[in-house]
Amino acid sequence: MTRLELLLALGCAVLVVGLVAHLLARDLVRRVVALNVASAGVMIVLLVLATRGTEPDPVAQALVLTGIVIMAAITGLALALVRRVEAPEDEEAP
């Protein structure tokens, strides 16, 4: 197995681990964490693709940077929703 194949397989494994855990977990914060793990898997695949050739691929790296920022924003929104979901009943009324 070459380094490229090893690391690509690692990315896929992390993605699958994250997705399966996300689908099976019931605790909402753990589901958010698992989603972030899955996203890390995709980022690994993209960045490993960027190492092909002599120089690292700046475009693939830029894509990953964008992906990380988007995931951070989505995590923030998800956690705000988690808190709203878990707020006691009486606080729901606007």
């Binding site: 194949e5 494994a13 699958v16 695949v45 693709l49 092909r52 050739g53 120089e55």
Partner: peptide, 21 residues
């Protein structure tokens, strides 16, 4: 199953740089 399939898939990735760099 998904992991096995993906591992097979990524073995087909060509080891050459993309057009963009």
């Amino acid at each position: 199953v998904a992991l096995a399939a993906l591992t097979v898939v990524v073995r087909a990735v060509p080891d050459e740089p993309s057009l963009l760099p």
